[in-house]
Structure formats: structure tokens, C-alpha cells
Amino acid sequence: MTPQIHNLLDEEGYLIDLDLWNEELMYALAKADNFELTSAHLEVIDTIREFYHEYQLSPAMRPLVKAMQNKYGTEKGKSIYLMKLFNDSPPKQAARYAGLPKPLNCL
């Protein structure tokens, strides 16, 4: 990770100033993890950002699944679908790339 990006993150890798987020930064954060973002990931990141905007809260797993279900249907509204997509806890990893705070109360 470049030192410039590193300075923008807290010790757990979450963006400190949420206003600094943009897509370029999102790809840079994923690249630093050697993680490739596909359109399927972008759907989750979009959903998380919308959730945060609506509820002022990064979602835990259950509400994220529900939000995905509401937006993309039952196929993608399943925890197994999200687990396969990410290598860390989906709500945490997606919140990091989405430039949002670490989800509280998340297993």
C-alpha cells in the first residue's frame, strides 16, 4: 500500500474521513489487499453505501443480506452468496472498500 493511502486509514484499515472516498480509492484499497473487485462486488459496495446513507450505520450481516435481497432478489440476498464473494467477513470487507466505518455488532 502506498504511504499516502495508509495515512488515510485507521489501524484496522477503515477510511478515517468518509468524504474522501471515491472509486479510485476503492480500487486502490482492494489492490492493496491483492483483491480483485468485480461487478458483483460493486453491487454489494453500492448497497452498503446506500444503506449507510439511509440509516447512518454500516450494516451487519443480517441487514446487508436483507438489503441485497430487496435490491437484487433472493439469489444474491443470501449470506452464502456474500461469503463466497469475499474472503473476510462480507460486511467488514465491503465497508472498508466502501469507505464506511467498521460495522459495529458484527460477528
Partner: peptide, 15 residues
Amino acid sequence: QKDLTKTLNALEMYD
């Protein structure tokens, strides 16, 4: 301040 009513609306999403 943050809008707590927004977060209260999330309760439904948490069942």
C-alpha cells in the same frame, strides 16, 4: 449531530 431516527428506522432490517 447524527440522525438517530435514521438508525432507528434500521431496526426493521435487523428484524
